[in-house]
Design a protein around this nucleic acid. Structure first.
Length: 349
DNA sequence: AATGCGGGGAT
DNA sequence: ATCCCAGCATT
């Protein structure tokens, strides 16, 4: 065994967090927590985990649910493909694996939404198998301990870290070790202002010795942000509201929203009303514009959404429009993007 | 190897 | 503003 593991485990026993998914070895709950926590902080995901386990205590109940209900419970958490994959994977567990989770990473990896990280997490934490997890915390901690200069977001870098992480693993208690390493990264070896002064590994941290802690890990990735202009038509007709389900390969897939007109840049209402898709929706009806709400800019990781909501009232709907209408009171049953949720809370009661 | 996918918190 | 977070799927 290496020097690192016992120190990490000792620190974890004293300073680790008490989290609900650490109090079970049920692979369903561990899998669920891991999917919720993909690219998501513990503080943000905790409430979702509690609500999901309350509503869906086992994989069968999750498999039996509708995708819309799962998306509604997922609303606000982001990366909605996780929710759709969660549903599909639950059905595969029931249908293909007889309701029992497989233990080996290769089999887990075959489930939708389960990649290298989640497969290793479930295999080690639920089944005690010796697989090291590799997530953002592990990259950072190892890059610092060994002062690794190779960028983590490249194939070569990834291979180095896979090897390093696996070589350090405590194969006697892989699940506890993995959680200890991640907690260590989340609480002590943080991205900014790590607490090296109270770090039990300071004595063997090569980056600390070299003064490069703030430079590790090295990443080469650059993100460019696209701007988009969304114009929503909030159409009310006799207590009913028009909603559409987002399809295709775009943001918010599977969520509901008002009928949307997108433009390449800023646009005013007359320009929208002249479009064919607008006239298809409202052409013949006696509609009137009763309000315009310019939403605050909505920032996603790779997109900035400029959204405006046009409130429109009409006494009658075309057949095409009527097919999209739901009762105003039922709008709350549909999962909507945060942007629309804010609008509904702020401007619509 | 690159790209797209959310939303929130920390700095 | 920028970065990051218990990553994954697609191209």
């Amino acid at each position: 065994m290496n020097r690192i593991a016992p120190i990490l485990l000792d620190w974890y026993a004293r300073s680790g967090r008490d989290l609900p998914w650490r109090r079970t070895r049920d692979p369903y709950r561990i899998w669920l927590s891991e999917v919720i926590l993909q690219q998501t902080r513990v503080g943000q995901g905790l409430g979702y985990y509690l609500r999901f386990t309350e509503r869906f205590p086992d994989v069968c109940s999750l498999a039996a649910a509708s995708e819309d209900e799962i998306l509604k419970l997922w609303q606000g958490l982001g990366y909605y493909s996780r929710a759709r994959n969660l549903h599909a994977a639950a059905r595969e567990i029931v249908g293909r694996f007889g309701g029992e989770f497989p233990a080996e990473p290769d089999a887990l990896r075959s489930l939708p939404g389960v990649g290298d990280y989640t497969a290793a997490a479930v295999a080690s934490m639920a089944f005690g198998l010796p697989y090291a997890v590799l997530d953002g915390n592990v990259f950072r901690v190892l890059a610092r301990l060994f002062d690794v200069e190779v960028p983590v977001d490249t194939g070569a870098g990834r291979r180095i870290f896979v090897e390093l992480a696996q070589s350090l693993l405590d194969t006697e208690r892989p699940g506890t070790y993995n959680q200890a390493l991640m907690d260590f990264g989340a609480l002590l070896c943080t991205p900014a202002q790590p607490r090296c002064g109270e770090c039990p590994l300071a004595g063997c941290c090569l980056a600390l010795a070299a003064g490069t802690v703030a430079l590790r890990p090295v990443k080469q990735g650059r993100t460019k942000v696209r701007e988009r202009w969304f114009h929503y038509l909030h159409i009310s007709c006799e207590g009913r509201t028009l909603l559409c389900r987002r399809e295709g390969r775009d943001i918010w897939q599977g969520l509901y929203e008002f009928p949307l007109l997108e433009t390449e840049g800023p646009a005013d209402f007359p320009a929208l009303a002249a479009r064919s898709d607008f006239r298809e929706l409202l052409g013949d009806a006696e509609w009137r514009l009763v309000g315009t709400v310019v939403m605050p800019r909505h920032q996603l990781s790779h997109q900035t959404i400029h959204a405006t909501v046009y409130r429109i009232e009409t006494p009658s709907l075309s057949a095409a429009a009527a097919a999209l209408a739901v009762d105003t009171a039922a709008v709350g049953d549909y999962a909507v993007p945060r942007l629309l949720e804010r609008y509904l809370l702020e401007y619509d009661g």
